[in-house]
Amino acid sequence: MISQIVLVLLQLLVIIALAPLLSGIIKKIKAFFQVRKGPSIFQPYYDIAKLLQKDSVVSKNVSWLFHAAPIISLVAVLTAGLLIPIFITELPFGFAGDLIAVVYLFALARFFIALASLDAGSSFGGMGGSREMFVASLVEPALMLSIFAIALNVGSTNLSYISQTVSAMGINAVSPYQILAFVALFIIAIAETGRIPVDNPATHLELTMIHEAMILEYSGKQLAIVELGAMIKQLLVFSLLANIFFPWGIASGLSASAVIIALLVYFAKLVVLGAVMAMVETSTAKWRLFRLPELLSISLMFSFLALVSFIIVKGG
């Protein structure tokens, strides 16, 4: 019981502590590719600390929902974090939700932020909310098919089970369908974390912004919570990619040495994924909103191929 509680707290701590660092690292790697010096990798921490100390300016049009939305969405994302294996496969709350539940918890977070975007009554917010829900609708079918492909391949939608099984299979887990599903899910990860070519996290130009437009009215500590929520979601999406497809190194039992190794391996995986993401961001331009269906159809095709090839090869 005690060890379970410690595990939950440790997992929460790791998620909250690493999330800003991941953002900082991606920014730094991006700066490297663009031959800039770039801010320190700890800059997101400073930003959040600064925001937490500032007064907030809130539109006089808003209702309680505007104030509640950041908390609900942060908490929904954190709850999802308790369902995803980070450094250990035996999660105390692993039974409480599977991969599908994680997707729907992210949807809960998005739902409230999108509602809050409409609350201040500015066109920017509505624009952002509308685009966010549009992109989410594009993502969802491809996402569900790749979840199905993974579930068929591994035999469950339960994330602890998936990590454990793939980790036990070792290098044998690498199969064509798993690779296809990974490519599909990587494209989805770009959309879910709001990165180029879907959304530009560094823009404030009204024609292009999606997530930034939604949260334009937030300031001060509320903005800090919204930003933290977005960073945590990004970390969790990366963790899903890492611990579904290459969970090797993750601890399966609760021993100190295994956990420390697992944490180091996990961090290395995040850095690699972040570097790949930074490369993608540097080498592509942002796409027009109405070209996004093409990008996500590619993802849909990959996940469909993963599913079909698995069924044809393995016969189910």
Binding site: A76, T79, F95, A96, D98, T157, Y161
Partner: peptide
């Protein structure tokens, strides 16, 4: 095998 517990999700959220 896969499971959900909305009871716990509700408590947590």
């Amino acid at each position: 095998p896969a499971s959900i517990s909305t009871t716990w999700i509700a408590l947590l959220v």
